[in-house]
Computed example of a mutant assay.
Amino acid sequence: MSSLSIRRWSWIHKWSSLVATSFMLLLCLTGLPLIYHHEIGHLLGNDVEAPALAPAVAPELAAAPPRANVDAVIGAARALYPNKLVMYISQEIDEPAIWNVTLGDTPTDEHYKPIAVDARTARVITEPAFEGGAFMSTMFRLHVDLFAGLYGKLFLGLMGLLLIVAIVSGVVLYAPFMRKLEFGTVRRERSARLKWLDLHNLLGIVTLVWALVVGATGMVNTWADLLLKVWQATEIAAMLEPYRGAAPPTQRASMDAAIKLAESAAPGMRVAFVAFPGTPFASPHHYGIYMRGSEAFSSRLYKPVLIDAQTGQITDQRALPRYLTALLISQPLHFGDYGGAPMKLLWALLDIATIIVLGSGLYLWVQRGRAARRHLQAVAQAREKAAPVLAHEGEGP
């Protein structure tokens, strides 16, 4: 590689890294507790001073009763807030004994009330808070959108793109640099700056694939709102075309019967969540029942089944488009949710290593600036000392 090419790649790596590093450090620091958000939620929930923060846990029963009527489950939640509307009901894949019922003042209420109801007895368990309470909620919002909504997400997506550019340019620069050294060499006997440069390069290569995966999936996740709007404007709009101009239903069919019908139409799949009429994942005329597989991979992929909210009959069902499939796959991969505790630990260790890479990069940039300033000061001082001598020599005999 020519010296000109090295200078160009060095410029790209320098500025893409500098622009993105501060935000990437923030994302790594906030992402670390989010990897263990379930565990932190249980830990804080077990604190006697904060019992309300505990995630919902289904009570143990002496016998395993059959699944309760879903209409009764919804009724139990609505009994707490009779003036609110049902927005969604959902089930976690690892907690089928609980229905999470979401209530709001409108179908798009952002200040909703979550209610956890026992799926076997139709009894209210609790009103769960975000796992970990205010701390985890703050970490989540900082990590997802910087408290700036869609604009914050798109900005973080741009930072993710710059991270990918910084990684690629770093790899290009790493090859000629390491021709002079063995892989993994850290020159501890030299200056602190050289030691941190070697450590920065070594950890950067070790975390290369992980950083690319997390950076790319994080960037895709920031497009979630836009991708959903595209899906609603195309696929969902086509599914709802026969209902254009129709009046909203005056009465609603049984949700329990609708779920059983969706399960029979999608054998081998289970209900992930149900969107009620008027919410963004349904229409004013339909229940949107979203089915998922039971395996680790297929459980992340949804299949929507639209059911007429008045007649209780299926009107359409189809697979998600590829761009939404990519989004749904990227979300758990971003936080290491695929492989249980071992993968979470690996994700946490790589996250910490990346924090060191980013921090050392900032340190090297600051130290390089200081070294440059010291060099300029030394040159200026040398010129000042030489000036009288040169002037004296210029006077002549």
Rank of each mutant, 00 (worst) to 15 (best):
Gln310Cys: 00
Gln367Trp: 06
Arg300Pro: 00
Ala348Thr: 13
Ser2His: 07
Ala134Cys: 01
Arg244Ala: 12
Pro51Ser: 06
Ser10Ala: 15
Trp223Glu: 10
Ala79Val: 03
Leu162Asp: 07
Leu261Gly: 01
Thr102Asn: 10
Val271Gly: 02
Ser264Met: 08
Arg322Met: 07
Met343His: 00
Glu263Ala: 11
Leu173Ala: 09
Val144His: 07
Leu228Met: 12
Ala50Thr: 07
Gln377Asn: 08
Val214His: 09
Phe147Thr: 01
Ala380Glu: 08
Tyr81Glu: 12
Ile40Asn: 07
Ile115Asp: 09
Val73Gly: 03
Ser22Gln: 04
Tyr36Phe: 15
Ile236Gln: 12
Thr325His: 01
Gly133His: 10
Gly160Met: 06
Leu358Ala: 11
Thr30Leu: 07
Ala341Asn: 01
Asp109Trp: 11
Met136Gly: 11
Ile6Phe: 12
Leu25His: 07
Ala166Asn: 05
Ser22Asn: 04
Ala309Val: 05
Leu324Pro: 03
Pro242Glu: 10
Ala72Glu: 11
Leu364Val: 06
Pro114His: 08
Leu44Phe: 13
Asn69Lys: 09
Ile40Arg: 03
Leu327Lys: 05
Glu189Ile: 08
Ala63Arg: 00
Trp196Glu: 03
Pro59His: 11
Ala319Met: 04
Thr21Cys: 14
Glu189Leu: 07
Pro342Val: 00
Arg374Asp: 14
Tyr81Cys: 04
Val172Asn: 00
Lys113Ala: 11
Ile93Val: 15
His42Lys: 13
Val86Trp: 05
Ala76Lys: 01
Met1Glu: 10
Thr138Met: 13
Ala372Cys: 07
Thr126Ile: 06
Asn201Glu: 06
Tyr323Cys: 02
Phe273Gly: 00
His375Thr: 14
Met136Cys: 10
Val220Glu: 05
Asn221Gln: 12
Leu227Arg: 10
Thr185Val: 14
Leu203His: 05
Lys260Pro: 00
Phe183His: 12
Val171Ile: 14
Arg322Leu: 10
Asn221Lys: 04
Lys195Ile: 03
Ser360Met: 04
Asp351Asn: 13
Leu203Ala: 15
